[in-house]
């Protein structure tokens, strides 16, 4: 990699500051990222400890194993939780995305009445602390007798996901030039055809990133599940919580590594969609 040269007119003190900032920035990035990286090698630990064993440090093959991954994919407690998460998160994501996208279409219409008040109400679930939402839903669901049910968990996760969809889709729609839609109409396309053939492809990246946010929220959520789910609805985060709380063993490191991988893939996907969206609109290549 080519080193960027500092401009020649800088004084030595300014150069010094530049390097100080760089050092400080790197230290802070280190603080942000390294704790996450440490768990990756540890998840291949052959012994049931959370630290690097002597064998691992000497890079002996016998110090490493895949046993914790095997444990994760075979222990019913973990597989059941994984299955639950992959049932609950997609359903909640679909509900949140449909409801949120419809609402955003309404909110960005020029004739929308009480726009700011309604927006404020719709993003409220993101603002209220999770513990409060969990408490309130627990009381309410006990009253409705839907505690310990899949329905309750899906409803709760849909509530948490919608603000993300509303915010990203609204932002995308606001950045959309209405001329495109009008141009399609003027060229003879029907309103619905103009919408699905012109507006939709342009807004899709926004919808997908909103849906990804909603998915991650549901996939990561533990407080509400802790309050309103029964053993039958145990999700992956709840199983991780139980593991951290009571029976801590390195299986959780394997799970954490896999989730980290998922986050990297999703973040990369989101970045690709952002670029595609910019390209489509001709903002930047």
């Amino acid at each position: 990699m080519r080193r960027r040269k500092l401009p020649g007119y800088l004084s030595p003190a300014e150069r010094g500051w530049f390097y100080v900032f760089r050092f400080y920035g790197l230290v802070v990035l280190f603080f942000l990222v390294v704790p996450l990286v440490v768990i990756v090698p540890l998840s291949f630990n052959a012994s049931p400890y959370f630290t690097f064993t002597r064998k691992m440090l000497e890079l002996q093959p016998s110090g490493y194993s895949l046993s914790w991954y095997k444990q994760f994919f075979t222990d019913p407690a973990w597989t059941h939780a994984l299955k639950n998460s992959f049932i609950i998160a997609p359903i909640a994501t679909i509900c949140a995305t449909v409801l949120g996208t419809l609402a955003s279409l309404g909110l960005t219409r020029p004739h929308m009445p009480y726009r700011s008040a309604i927006t404020a109400v719709l993003v409220l679930p993101m603002i209220v602390p999770l513990i409060i939402t969990a408490t309130a839903l627990f009381f309410y669901f006990s009253y409705l007798h839907i505690v310990d049910s899949y329905l309750g968990v899906v409803i709760a996760h849909t509530i948490l996901g919608t603000p993300f969809v509303v915010i990203t889709v609204t932002a995308t729609l606001e950045g959309l030039d209405p001329q495109f839609y009008r141009a399609a109409l003027s060229l003879g396309a029907s309103p619905s055809r103009s919408f699905f053939k012109v507006v939709m492809p342009l807004v899709l990246p926004g919808i997908i990133s909103g849906a990804l946010f909603a998915f991650m929220t549901s996939f990561d959520e533990v407080v509400i599940v802790l309050f309103i789910a029964g053993p039958q609805q145990k999700t992956l985060p709840l199983q991780m919580w139980t593991n951290l709380r009571y029976t801590i063993d390195p299986t959780i490191l394997a799970v954490a590594t896999l989730i980290l991988l998922l986050a990297v893939v999703l973040l990369g996907g989101l970045e690709l969609f952002r670029r595609r969206s910019e390209k489509l609109r001709g903002i930047k290549v």
């Binding site: 996450l36 768990i39 996939f219 951290l244 980290l260 986050a263």
Partner: peptide, 8 residues
Amino acid sequence: SLLVRITA
């Protein structure tokens, strides 16, 4: 995931 970070 928050739990992954706490695990770390």
